[in-house]
Simulated assay, not measured.
Amino acid sequence: MSADLSDLNAFLAVARAGGFRDGARAAGASASGLSDAVRRLEARLGVRLLHRTTRSVVPTEAGRRLLERLGPALGEVEAALDAVNSFRDRPAGTLRLNVPVSASRLVLPRLVPPFLAAYPEIRLEVIAEDGFVDVLAAGCDAGIRYDERLEADMIAVSIGPRVQRYATAASPDYLRRHGRPEHPRDLLHHACLRGRFASGAMTVWEFEREGEVVRVDPTGPLLVSVGGATDLAVEAAVAGTGIIILFEDWLRPHLDSRALEPVLEPWWQAFSGPFLYYPGRRLVPAPLRAFIDFIKDAAR
């Protein structure tokens, strides 16, 4: 019994994503096209592979068995095909990266245009989200994360600035009306603009000065989802709604224009910059190898 490779890839994309729409987004295809491919595969195999409801798509027992064997097998096929890239003058193919929104805004803009100019036969796909995901399960070749969220079996390569800081800021109007906090605990008496991760966890406001670490849990009039709605919080801070804490580089244009003023700057906490990470247990695809070499050269 044989099956078309594209139909197998379609099933894999839908099963991993948990739906035809998300699977289509990950695979760069149409949802209707994936649906037709899965139906062809089920008809050829004579067994239902996916339970479909209006709310979700989940593998059947047969689908789970196929998924367990299919992922590694197709990975080997991709690796075998990618080996041909070594005989080309330039690497070609698709590179898929899963990155936090902060990296898509603060790190990649300096790297992506020159990288794509240097490798015109590589197609780069960037999925920006702040939830923690398995890059392989998401169909990506690599991701960008900070060291506290790296998995043990991953290879990590520095990308972007090696040291970053969290900056606290407010508009001149807000500070005129409410005063300037002198200690992190003063923030408990101020309007603070908070963020919440997709997991439901709230962002921690942490400060450090001369070895002393202070964590506070302030309240305020605005709560936004981290990443997708962060710019709304920034604009609210500029408008005088409250105090914000965010990557210094994200706030830097507003600090330089004086639309925002630094708050508690001696307490701004520094942390190590992000890493590009990828599985060490599989052959590195040629587009990813080219990107790794490119960011290493850029760092030099």
Score class of each variant (00 low, 15 high):
residue 176 R to L: 13
residue 125 E to P: 09
residue 88 R to W: 05
residue 298 A to M: 13
residue 290 A to K: 04
residue 273 G to I: 00
residue 265 E to A: 12
residue 2 S to T: 15
residue 260 L to S: 00
residue 276 L to R: 01
residue 226 V to I: 15
residue 130 D to K: 07
residue 29 A to C: 14
residue 106 L to P: 12
residue 241 T to F: 02
residue 186 D to E: 01
residue 173 D to C: 12
residue 195 G to V: 04
residue 179 G to F: 00
residue 88 R to T: 05
residue 53 T to S: 14
residue 63 G to P: 04
residue 131 G to V: 11
residue 291 F to T: 04
residue 123 R to D: 10
residue 110 R to M: 13
residue 285 P to A: 05
residue 203 T to S: 12
residue 194 R to F: 00
residue 263 V to I: 03
residue 148 E to R: 12
residue 290 A to R: 01
residue 129 E to I: 15
residue 214 V to G: 12
residue 111 L to Q: 01
residue 296 K to I: 15
residue 234 V to Y: 02
residue 71 G to T: 14
residue 83 A to D: 09
residue 201 A to L: 10
residue 164 Q to G: 07
residue 202 M to Q: 14
residue 182 E to A: 12
residue 110 R to D: 14
residue 179 G to V: 02
residue 77 V to G: 02
residue 29 A to Y: 13
residue 24 A to I: 07
residue 13 A to L: 11
residue 50 L to E: 09
residue 33 G to N: 10
residue 265 E to Y: 02
residue 9 N to T: 10
residue 296 K to H: 14
residue 294 F to I: 04
residue 147 D to Y: 15
residue 94 T to N: 06
residue 25 R to M: 10
residue 123 R to N: 09
residue 139 G to P: 09
residue 145 R to E: 02
residue 104 S to E: 15
residue 28 G to W: 06
residue 156 A to H: 01
residue 60 T to D: 03
residue 173 D to F: 12
residue 232 L to M: 06
residue 114 P to V: 08
residue 238 V to Q: 08
residue 217 D to Q: 12
residue 265 E to Q: 11
residue 204 V to L: 06
residue 202 M to P: 03
residue 110 R to W: 12
residue 216 V to M: 06
residue 241 T to A: 13
residue 4 D to S: 10
residue 286 A to D: 03
residue 146 Y to Q: 04
residue 236 A to T: 06
residue 171 S to R: 05
residue 212 E to K: 13
residue 156 A to S: 06
residue 202 M to L: 14
residue 17 A to T: 09
residue 60 T to L: 02
residue 155 I to S: 09
residue 101 V to F: 02
residue 184 P to Q: 09
residue 226 V to D: 09
residue 8 L to R: 01
residue 43 A to C: 09
residue 2 S to L: 15
residue 58 V to I: 13
residue 223 L to Y: 06
residue 216 V to L: 06
residue 112 V to F: 10
residue 67 L to M: 00
residue 74 L to P: 04
residue 164 Q to R: 13
residue 130 D to W: 03
residue 21 R to K: 14
residue 227 G to M: 01
residue 239 A to D: 07
